[in-house]
Each structure stands twice: as C-alpha cells, then as structure tokens.
Write a protein that binds this DNA or RNA. Structure first.
Lengths: 108, 108
DNA sequence: CTCTACAGTATCCTTGAGGTAACTATACCA
DNA sequence: TGGTATAGTTACCTCAAGGATACTGTAGAG
C-alpha cells in the first residue's frame, strides 16, 4: 500500500525540475564547492542570467549555500547545504531508474 | 561517491514531470484500473484534451496500458504496466522527501 | 589609459506546455 | 424526434520558463 500524496511529490519535483536544476545539483554533488565560473563551465549552454536565476532559486529553498567573498574581481562559491544533501538519495533513485529505462529502450 | 548522471536523471524526470503526470500516476497506483471518466473525476481541473495527451504520452513510454472495449458508448480503461510499477519506489522516495520538506517549511 | 577577470543586471524575444470551447460518432431511451 | 452518455478531436489562445545580447563595477597588470 503505497499511500503517496501527489502534493508532496509535486513539492519535491518543483525543487529539482527545470531544464538546468538537475545538472546544477549533480555538479555540486560531485564537485563539492564550486565557483560561479566553474558551474558555468560545467553547463556548456546555460546563459549567465539563467544560471544566476537557478542558483538563487535553490538558495532560497535552502538547498544550496552561496558565499560571497568581498574581493575584486568578485568571488562567489556555491555548495550543497546539509539539507540539500538529503536530496542525494532522491536523485540516486531517479538515476537508477533512468539507467533501467535507457537499457530497456535500447532493446526495442 | 554518488556517480549520478544528469542524463539519466533527466530521463526519469521527463516521464514523471508535468502539471498532471504525478497525479495521474498516483491515481493509477492507488486505483489499479481506472476508466477515462474516473481519471477525469479524480483530477478535477484537467481538460479532456490534456488528460488524453498525458495518457497517450505515458502509454507511448509503456508506463501505462490502455484498453479499448468496442462498445457504445465507448469504454476505455487505463492501468499501470508492470514496467510502470517500477516507478512506484521512485515516487515513494520523492513523497518521503516532500513530507520532510513540508515539515521543515512549517517550522520557519 | 586601457584591458582583463569575475559575477553578475537589464532588455527584449521565443517557444512549448497547458488551457478553452466547440465539435464528433453511435447506440440506447423516452 | 430529440436527449444522454463516453471518449475523444480540432482550432485557437495564453503565459511563464528559458534564451540572446549588451551593459556594469572595480582592482591590478601592462
């Protein structure tokens, strides 16, 4: 008996969906702490505007932590919060499922 | 070391995201086999056009099975495929995370 | 003096997911 | 003769996410 509520699932989905959010989260999972320019480099086609917007979204939800160093040229880095790290199992579950799905599609 | 690939996660996300897909999947998880009209009733604000489109999407990915009975008035029902049922753990994981998130937001 | 590095803003534009409303086919019922 | 039920389809519309491009501020290097 599953007892899954669409509302809760939607909440989780809202935070991790979008064209870029999964890639950003995965970059931070694998890269620990990354500067803005490092993130941009690992997402080849994203524009600065969009990257900033997505990072601000994630920060507002306390999923990532943004640290500004008062230097010139500016330096800002991003990392997963402890809370954000609780998303890792969710992403792992989806990743595992995605691999099965790809496997399956290859056979058709 | 997580080793999560954005590509695979995106694949999984594409199949279960959208404004209505989670609700449809959950209805079928909880309701086993449902007619078109039953699904429509359990998603109060969806239009026929959108519901049809979403169901066709899910059918094309082999996640649900669509059965047409050659009767008048028409009867069609939908259920999760065995393959579609492998999504249940994914949705459960997201559901559990969503509950934690809601809990957390309530305290702020 | 001006060029570069970095992390952004500001403007304007495009696209596709989703939405609304009307129409379809057919058998049965009154 | 017309109304009802079911599972759609068709044509048209809307809006927000995302995208392209240019501009900003400041310190040090040359």
């Amino acid at each position: 008996m599953p007892l899954i509520s669409s509302c809760e699932v939607d909440t989780a989905l809202e935070l991790i969906t979008g064209k870029w959010k999964p890639s950003i989260l995965l970059a931070l999972i694998n890269g620990d702490t990354l500067r803005f320019s490092e993130l941009k480099r690992s997402l080849p086609n994203i524009s600065q505007k969009i990257l900033t917007a997505q990072l601000r979204d994630l920060e507002e939800q306390d999923i990532i932590i943004r640290t500004v160093y008062p230097e010139v040229p500016p330096r800002v880095d991003y990392r997963l919060s402890e809370y954000g790290k609780t998303l890792i199992p969710v992403l792992e579950t989806m990743n595992a499922w995605g691999i099965q799905h790809a496997e399956r599609m290859r056979q058709k």
